[in-house]
Design a protein around this nucleic acid. Sequence first.
DNA 1: GCCAACGTTGGC
DNA 2: GCCAACGTTGGC
Length: 135
Amino acid sequence: MKKYWLLKSEPDTYGWSDLEGLGEDHWDGVRNYQARNFIRDMSVGDLGFFYHSGKACEIVGVIKITSAPYQDPTTSDGCWLCVNVKCEKILPKPVTLKQIKTESRLSNMVLLKNSRLSVQPVEKDAFEYILQLSR
DNA sequence: GCCAACGTTGGC
DNA sequence: GCCAACGTTGGC
């Protein structure tokens, strides 16, 4: 079954346009066990939101998981994983954190409960609802 | 720039 | 195995 995710990045370091320019890239550098465990659960074809943290604080687009999880090439430590991703579609209107906070249907999102987790699951209903909000 | 929340490290 | 100290992340 297809799963849904949210991946966070600081746009000054690595933003939507960086991934768009590359076409496809690996989502590397995750050094948190909880986040790593979510990466381990990813499958080809899963979808995820690309979230810009820091200045903007908003979901800017949808990305697609294009590989199974494999060892993160940016470290020799075998316990870290990454997956390949590519841009699926940019949101017509970004959905801001502020907006998410006002939606009672989204109040149980991990984004609100654990704002520091950089890779997190999103429920199907929440995913689809956010897509509606972005129109 | 500040601070809260969270994770990690290391002494005991 | 507990907990204090420290570092990092991210919203404000």
